[in-house]
């Protein structure tokens, strides 16, 4: 797997970086006070610079899903300035910071004092929300044509609702049975394809509430399809509220066409 390789590579980088940095610090420290200066008339007072040191630098947790937060925690000694990269900038000598990484990220903490510095890195592994498919084989042209025919048929079979309701009528139950059957056939033919269940509402309730109502329609539709044997992990829901009507007139025939759950192929 690619991710595993990435993690190994990151760990290796972190390891080598940590090794490289420690050596020059250990060597450089004595050099500063190593001025013999025996013949001068005026004596320069020795400039004592303490060696900056990062005592600890951790990320908690080290692995999150995208959208979740992590907390960086660090402690330093003898640092004049402490900086954190990834756009954070100067931070306190000892502190914590809550961050929301959008992808796997290596954070670099640098403690400086004069020309000397200590650097540590910590890597956070950010995973995407669980993927639905795992790279199945592509389908043949014949199968693709069949899938297209079944999908077209599916798109004509919306599930309709009464005003301000998310309960199924008899006609909706018939449509659900047809849709479940079509979905199962499509899923059996192609392992890669997934579907989004869109919830829609007519224009009459408030636009804000209609997002909630249409969401409920999408969720009950998904639950019913799963009851009828459609695999849940290949369905996702989204609410359009009243924002994507198929019909614009202000009459019941039109409103009814808009109060629906609609299935569309996921991108």
């Amino acid at each position: 797997m690619k991710r595993a390789a990435l993690v190994v590579l990151m760990s290796a980088l972190v390891f080598t970086a940590a090794c490289k940095k420690k050596v020059p610090v250990a060597v450089a420290a004595p050099v500063v006070n190593n001025d013999p200066g025996p013949v001068k008339t005026t004596v320069q007072p020795p400039v004592l610079i303490s060696v900056p040191r990062i005592d600890s630098f951790t990320a908690e947790p080290a692995r999150v899903e995208r959208g979740q937060s992590i907390t960086l925690r660090w402690a330093t000694t003898n640092a004049e300035t402490v900086t954190l990269d990834q756009g954070v900038g100067t931070v306190a000598a000892n502190g914590t910071r809550q961050l929301f990484p959008t992808g796997s990220t290596t954070y670099v903490l640098i403690a400086r004092n004069g020309t000397m510095s200590d650097t540590r890195t910590v890597t956070v592994d950010v995973t995407a929300p669980p993927p639905i498919t795992n790279t199945p084989p592509p389908v043949s042209e014949d199968t693709a044509a069949t899938i297209k025919r079944l999908t077209d048929e599916l798109q004509k079979q919306d599930i309709y609702f009464d005003y301000d309701m998310a309960e199924f009528r008899e006609d909706a139950r018939r449509a659900l049975n047809t849709d479940a059957d079509l979905l199962k056939r499509i899923f059996a033919l192609d392992q890669r394809v997934n579907f989004v269940i869109e919830g829609h509402a007519d224009e009459r309730g408030s636009a804000e509430y209609n997002l909630g109502l249409a969401d409920r329609r999408a969720i009950v539709t998904r639950d019913a399809l799963v009851q009828l044997g459609v695999p849940a992990n290949r369905l996702r829901t989204i609410s359009f509220g009243e924002e994507a009507p198929v019909c614009q007139d202000a009459n019941e025939a039109c409103w009814q066409r808009n109060r629906r759950a609609h299935l569309s192929q996921a991108q």
Partner: peptide, 13 residues
């Protein structure tokens, strides 16, 4: 500005 929407399908108001 930095804002990470909590994981969800639908958000309103």
């Amino acid at each position: 500005q930095a804002f990470v929407t909590p994981a969800t399908s639908t958000i309103t108001t």
